[in-house]
């Protein structure tokens, strides 16, 4: 046996070596944005046409990982822009002091809430919602209250607020609707919870699409993909009377970036139709600006929540641990 490991590595290296053009913008993001059919490639092409630079993605597992990586690298980071944080990770990211103000005027935003933040620029948003299988559940609950009071043989799949963004979203949703009563309502709900998965993917792929339960915690925009691409109306979101909790995905400039101007140009580009038109079907979320006629037709058929529920990120950061602990207590009692 003659293993020549170093040689192997040496032989592999040139395969990856690329010539670097004059200006490169490094963006840290997560996999669903950078995927081949995600918005990433189209955005890259569109931006490179206008900037005469190269747009580079470094793909990390989740928003949490982007933040983690940024923290580890500190001011020596090679990131110019981070894209893929959300309202749950924003505050922690802000506190690192590694991010720079965007100095843009955010007057063309089309968000259900008023957005004034000098660091984070939203690029898409959506509502958390329970998606149900119309074949298994022809008449879904019409409100959160109805779901909580439903008999225990209605099974639902949720995600764990300790490890997943939608999971935390439901926790905040319950908190926003019920306040101090949330604990008792969670106890009522727990009998219906078939599984509390680590991530949205685990629940959606392994359980929901296998028909294990008729309802799963997801996004109100999820049916858009099934309707537009899969050509099926089978999966729909249940509209809840109390309103739906809002998630906003954001990007920010990195303080230590040597390409501040280019970074700002990208952030501006981010709020233009050239970027935003790829959001609805490729990221399956609402665009952050009004796209007018460019918004795909299926988006008209999505539920329209009566009210957008939203807690300030700073408040979320303060309350999260005690909310999670209360949830744990309710679910394990």
């Amino acid at each position: 046996m003659r293993f020549r490991l170093p040689l192997l590595f040496a032989a592999l290296l040139p395969a990856f070596a690329t010539a670097e053009p004059a200006q490169v913008l490094n963006v840290y993001t997560h996999p669903s944005f950078a995927a081949e059919w995600g918005p990433g490639p189209a955005v890259k092409q569109a931006f490179e046409e206008q900037c005469e630079c190269e747009l580079n993605y470094t793909v990390l597992e989740s928003g949490g990982d982007i933040l983690q990586r940024l923290r580890l690298e500190g001011s020596s980071t090679s990131a110019d822009v981070v894209l893929g944080l959300d309202t749950a990770t924003m505050e922690a990211a802000r506190q690192t002091g590694l991010l720079a103000p965007h100095t843009l005027t955010l007057n063309n935003l089309a968000l259900p809430v008023d957005w004034q933040d000098d660091t984070f620029v939203p690029y898409d948003w959506g509502y958390f919602a329970f998606v149900y299988d119309t074949e298994l559940l022809p008449e879904p609950p019409a409100s959160l209250e109805e779901l909580v009071n439903a008999p225990d043989d209605l099974k639902i799949i949720i995600q764990d607020p300790r490890t997943s963004t939608p999971g935390l979203g439901l926790l905040l949703w319950m908190h926003a609707v019920y306040g101090d009563d949330a604990h008792a309502k969670w106890q009522q709900l727990s009998g219906k919870v078939l599984a509390t998965t680590q991530s949205w993917s685990d629940g959606y792929f392994s359980l929901f699409m296998n028909g294990e339960a008729p309802m799963i915690l997801s996004y109100s925009t999820s049916p858009a993909y099934h309707m537009a691409v899969d050509n099926t109306d089978r999966y729909q979101a249940a509209r809840f009377e109390e309103g739906h909790y809002l998630q906003v995905e954001v990007a920010a400039l990195v303080n230590s970036s040597k390409n501040q101007a280019l970074g700002r140009e990208f952030m501006e580009f981010m709020l233009s139709p050239a970027f935003q038109r790829h959001i609805p079907l490729k990221n399956v979320m609402y665009p952050a600006i009004d796209l007018g006629d460019e918004l795909p037709e299926v988006f008209d058929r999505l539920i329209r929540p009566s009210k957008a529920l939203f807690l300030e990120p700073a408040e979320v950061a303060r309350e999260r641990r005690s909310l999670v602990n209360a949830w744990l207590d309710a679910m394990t009692r």
Binding site: F16, Y28, P31, S32, A34, A35, E36, W37, G38, G40, P41, Y57, T58, V59, L60, E61, D65, R69, S201, Y204, F205, M209, S222, Y225, H226, V229, D230, K282, V284
Partner: peptide, 25 residues
């Protein structure tokens, strides 16, 4: 691979998760 960040091109498991993340069940 997710921990360290991969360049744009995915490996098989990353592809799988990307497909999941984009509803390509």
């Amino acid at each position: 691979i997710a921990l360290f960040g991969s360049p744009g091109q995915p490996t098989l498991p990353v592809l799988l998760y990307q497909q999941l993340g984009s509803y390509r069940i």
